[in-house]
Structures are given as C-alpha cells and as structure tokens.
Design a binder for these strands. Structure first.
Lengths: 202, 202
DNA sequence: CCCGCGTCTGGACGACCGTCAAGACTTTCT
DNA sequence: AGAAAGTCTTGACGGTCGTCCAGACGCGGG
C-alpha cells in the first residue's frame, strides 16, 4: 500500500524530485543544455537513469522543474543588501559586492540560466517558466533601484524593465569574460555598473 | 588533375563552402544549436550529408565557418545610418528604424547569435570567434555613439564597451518578447532605447 | 509468514548522432 | 580516347539519446 499519511507521501516524492532536480541543475550548469543527457544527470545523483521517468514524465518536465527550483534561489539575492543599507552608497556597495561575488562564485549557474533562457527562444515549452523568472529578476532589480532612489533622494530615470535589461546586458558581458578566463572580468563589471548606474538614477 | 588555375579552384571550393555554410546558418537559426544535426543542414542544401565532411573537417569547423560568415553581415548594420545622418535626431531615428526592422525581420538569426554566444560559455572551441564578433559589434555601436555625440555636440558618458552591453541587454529582452509573440516588442524596445540613450549621452 | 505496493535497477528499443570509406559520376589534362 | 583528379552519394560504423518495461528489492499490513 501507499504511505499511511498521504501528506508524508507527497513530501517524500517531492523531496526526491527535488533531489533529482538538484543533480540535474548541477549537470546542466556543467555541460550545458545541448550536451546534457538523462544518464549524465542520473550519474550525478545516487540513482540510475531509469528513476528519472518514475518521478518525471519526460525530459522537458524534469528541466522545467529544475528551472522552477532555481528561480527561488536567485530572485532574493540582493534583498538583504536592500534591507540593511542605510545610505545610497552603502546600497550600491552591497549590490556590487553581491554581484561580483556571484559572477566569480557561480559563473556556471549563470551561464545555465542564459542557456535556458535562450532555449526558450526555440522551445515554446520553456517560455512560460523563463518569462516568470525573468519577471522575478526584474522586480528584484526594481526593488534595488527604487530603494536607491529613496535613499539618495533622487528618482529613477528609466523604467525598471529597462533597468533590468541594462544590468543584465552588463552582467552577461562580464560573464562571457569571466568564463573565458579574464581575471579582470569582475573588476570591469564593477567599473561599468558604476559608470552606468549614476546616469540612470540622478 | 585539379583545376588548371589554382585561384579558380580555391574560389570554387570557397563558394561551395559558403553555400553549405548558408544552409547551416538557416538550419541553426530555425532549430537552434542543440537540435541541429548535419543531416538537417544537408537537407536544406542541394547535397547529401556526406559532402559536409568533404568541405569541412568536422562539425565544429562547419559551425565556426558559419559564424565567421554571419559576422560580416551583422557588423555593418548601422553604418549607413551613421554615414547619411546630418543631425543627431536623424541618426537616432535611423538607428531605431534599423534596430526594430532587424528585430521583427530576422529574429531567428538573432536568437542564433545569442545561442552560439552562449555555447561559447561551455565550448571553448567557439570562444575566439564569438569574442571577435562581439568586438566587431561593440565597435559598430561605438561608431554610432561617437557620431551621435559629434552631431549633438555632447559626449558619451560611458565607455563603448558598456554602451554595447547596455544596448545588447535591451535588444535581448525585446527579442525574447518578440519570439514569444508579443506584438509590442518592437515598440517597447524603441521606447526603452529612447529612454536610456539620452541618459548615457548628454 | 507472505502478499501487495511503492520504489528502483538495468537492459532493451528504435531513432538519431558525427564520422568515415568505398565507389559512382564529372571534369580536366595528356 | 584514356587516365587522373575532383566531387558527390550512399550506406555503414559505433555511440548516445529519450523512453519504456520486466523484474528485483524493501517494507508495512493482512
């Protein structure tokens, strides 16, 4: 029979799905979407490849589930900096610290995000989830910007949509350089943001 | 024996390589890197799949050659607008016209570019070519910006590297929306650029 | 105890992949 | 004309892919 308490069963299944999704994320971050097979994912977990179809209908559902879990981690990255900063300079410093830390610390995770976002341009099945995460990220940037404006007594000169796109473009260039082995990548991202940001909020 | 005049032979071979590269570009733009096989490419040409290894050592060289041909087309997109504009407003108008035209007219080609640029984050074999194209695009943007500054009697407030990253970020967001079927994608790109640009050059 | 169910393994399937080689066809030179 | 070189087709190769399935394993309830 199934588990005595249904809630427990759901939890157990959900936990295993989460476990497998974590292995999938790690694999995708290392190999990229184009080179990742289900056997690669299973090899990074403690199970065999067959179990993936026990917990997920197919590959698309597995990756979709991955992306959903990934989302939760990302979209709160700067919230602490927003909450603790008492001056505009402090906020910028906290933002830059966090941004460069994630650039050098988790570059593989970020290239995965860009990879999946690109896949959504080809594969409609990914579009809804990608758009949702993108919106979360945009709002996160929006919180930073509006707090900055508040602290500095100024106001944003551009919409938060545009702001997010701008910062994302700068970050993506830095990520390309970081992954190409450029040791100056983080520093020049810092410089570029400090160059651009004051122009857009003043 | 081979052709009588070696120059002709090279031309012939180069032409066929170009022909096959064009078919490859079309296929990649339609299917994306992850889903494109050599047989798909051959099917879009008038030859069979075996010929690809006659003209290219392997898949990587084929795609690399594609990307190199693609580069030539892209990096001069705004040059005419730069050359003909006599006022700053005219230049902006020409830039925006060209940008929105390419967004709605060749979205598949642009998603391919972003796809390949992302692949270079995983596959070192693509890095050199991608970096080279990115540099060409950056310089193209640089020409637009410096001409704008010249015409308007102002000066750029940020480096051309940052400028390129910013515009690229805006374009990428618009492309995502365009491919998701948003009919407002081009209009909001226009709006965003007009919002951001004056802040960065004034 | 053993039965039944949830869980997991490991192999098999057909399809597709990049690569390659044998040979047919075409063109060019002697 | 005959030979040789260049060009292209075809089919095969070993491998990997996503998917599926028969069965083994563990475990709690009859």
């Amino acid at each position: 029979m199934g588990p005595a308490v249904e809630g427990r069963a759901v939890d157990k299944v959900a936990q295993r799905r989460s476990e497998l999704a974590a292995a999938a994320l790690e694999t995708l971050a290392e190999l990229g979407y184009a080179r990742t097979g289900l056997r690669d994912i299973a090899a990074r977990s403690e199970f065999s490849h067959g179990v993936l179809h026990y917990y997920f209908r197919d590959k698309v559902e597995l990756i979709t589930h991955c992306v959903r879990e990934y989302k939760a981690r990302c979209a709160t990255r700067y919230d602490e900096a927003v909450a603790t900063a008492t001056t505009a300079e402090e906020l910028v410093a906290g933002f830059l610290r966090e941004q460069t830390a994630t650039l050098t610390g988790e570059p593989r995770m970020h290239r995965l995000w860009y990879d999946l976002r690109n896949q959504s341009m080809f594969e409609p099945a990914f579009r809804a989830d990608v758009a949702e995460i993108d919106l979360l990220l945009e709002r996160m940037v929006g919180r930073v910007v509006s707090r900055y404006a508040e602290l500095s007594g100024t106001r944003p000169r551009v919409s938060s949509t545009a702001f997010y796109a701008v910062l994302d473009g700068l970050f993506q260039q830095a990520l390309l350089r970081q992954l190409a082995g450029d040791p100056e990548a983080a520093a020049s991202l810092r410089a570029a943001v400090q160059e651009v940001l004051p122009q857009l909020v003043h």
